[in-house]
Design a protein around this nucleic acid. Structure first.
Length: 190
DNA sequence: TGGGCGATTCGCT
DNA sequence: GCGAATCGCCCAC
């Protein structure tokens, strides 16, 4: 059976609220290591919780560039978080990748993470960056070129929706998307 | 130029 | 469930 088609930069040149749910079930690989995306969050440019809300800064420059590129930032001084930049038109929106179901490169993930259980490898934005070896070196790289490989979902998975995690602004907006019934989520949906 | 603060994780209770 | 770890970013002084 052939692999699903690779996603193109045009896929990301749409509203973050359309792109985010369509990423559930897609396959994300970094250097041959990765799996199926099971959880994401949307950050729109009109959203007070978005890093781009206050305008361009050195950190968020990539968000104000063209869609289809990686925005990687440091969280709590410790972890890295990976985003897809969306929507070109004078805006700055992105999708945060929060959890994967690991399918390729399990040994590399276990080595990087220092844990054995598959559920603990990629069940959180910081965890999956560690497992896939994503750092600030990937900030500004295109998703349709190495080391990234992104393939479309197969069929239409059942999607659950809920409020986003760990933020203090716009906390009630239901812009977190997950694969229904997945055991690899960072947290259960309410 | 300095202090407060985070799109988190992990270990201990 | 709660709090520490940890540091770059960002804005107010």
């Amino acid at each position: 059976m052939p692999l699903p088609p690779k996603l193109t930069r045009a896929f990301f040149d749409r509203s973050v609220h359309k792109v985010a749910p369509e990423l559930i079930g897609a396959t994300l690989m970094v250097g041959g290591v990765g799996g199926v995306i099971v959880e994401v969050e949307a950050y729109h440019h009109t959203d007070p919780a978005s890093h781009s809300f206050g305008g361009p800064t050195p950190r968020n420059t990539v968000m104000f560039g063209p869609p289809g590129f990686a925005y990687v930032y440091r969280s709590y001084g410790i972890h890295w978080c990976l985003n897809f930049v969306c929507e070109r038109e004078g805006s700055a929106s992105a999708v945060l990748i929060r959890a994967l179901e690991p399918t390729e490169g399990l040994a590399a993930m276990r080595r990087r993470r220092g844990v054995a259980e598959a559920r603990a490898l990629c069940s959180g934005p910081g965890k999956l960056c560690e497992a896939l070896g994503v750092t600030v070196k990937h900030n500004g790289l295109a998703f349709d070129r190495a080391p990234f490989e992104l393939r479309a979902r197969v069929g239409k998975p059942e999607i659950v929706v809920g409020p986003r995690i760990g933020i203090t602004k716009a906390v009630d907006e239901p812009w977190r998307y997950g694969l229904k019934g997945s055991r690899f989520l960072s947290k259960p949906f309410p």
